[in-house]
Amino acid sequence: MTFRRGNQAPRRKAVIPAAISIEETFVTFGIFVMQLFNGLSLFTILLLMALGLAIVFGLMGVINMAHGEIMAMGAYTTYLTASFIEHHLPGLMGVYLFIAILLAFAVTFAFGYVLERGFIRWFYHRPLDTLLATWGLSLILQQTYRSVFGAQEVSVPLTTWLSGAWEPTETIQLPLNRIFIVALTILVTLGVWYILHKTRWGLRARAVTQNRAMSSAVGIDTNRVDALIFALGSGLAGIAGSVFTMVGSTNPGTGQLYIVDSFIVVVFGGVASLLGTAASSFLIAQMQTALEYLMSGSMAKVAILLLVITVLYFRPNGLFASKVRA
């Protein structure tokens, strides 16, 4: 993960002295809480990244290699919104992020819809072709970003009420922007759960996922469902991209950084399971932050990859494969 780490707790080596004073206990406790929070924060970031992919990959079985570039599209939309508001409507700078998130969702949702209707649907039942075609698309998008926005990084101004940290005690500092991401992720996840499980649209999506031919034979317009699932997955990627502008800057290659982590989370959790995706993000994030405390970041990553591979060896369908007899 290559996010800006400026507003995280400085890393300390765990050297515990023989006699611990009360003051030191507080400090240790503070570090512990901040470690937990760092894990939680990474968890929500991973989850936000993986949600859109879990929907498209899990429900439709489409591996969209351009998913990361769609996140980048959300990030660039946020950048454009910020620049526009900064120059033309500076009074709105306090809430620009909310406008940007909505716009990023709208733009990527529409892009996903058109992409499915005009492109992806011609490659169904040909997984390898889908892989190649969407990989090609990701290159085209990267090149487009490069020509439009330039190769250098762009970043957005951090809203004033989101800079700084919440300090419940002297030794605990929780960055406000991270708290915001945690809250937003919870909201988005609940929203997705609600759509999938409590609306007629979600019911159609779940039926099509289980049996496409039979869904059509009970009267469900499966083409429309495909397009909407893909659009929703893209829209979620857009939200993720928009939110990430708060913790990292954006360049044409940003999407590539996101996609690998997202795939690890989705495959580890078991496709077609929202709970699995959440649990898997949680486990990976907590392990990564805990391990990073003890060893270097890249060693932590290797350890996690090894663990994921081991789990997938014994549970090829991921942690949360469902258990209903068919």
Binding site: R204, R206, A207, I220
Partner: peptide, 11 residues
């Protein structure tokens, strides 16, 4: 199989 009886009917 993964939908409830009621959800099956709703489809």
């Amino acid at each position: 199989p993964q939908l409830t009886v009621e959800e099956n009917l709703l489809t």
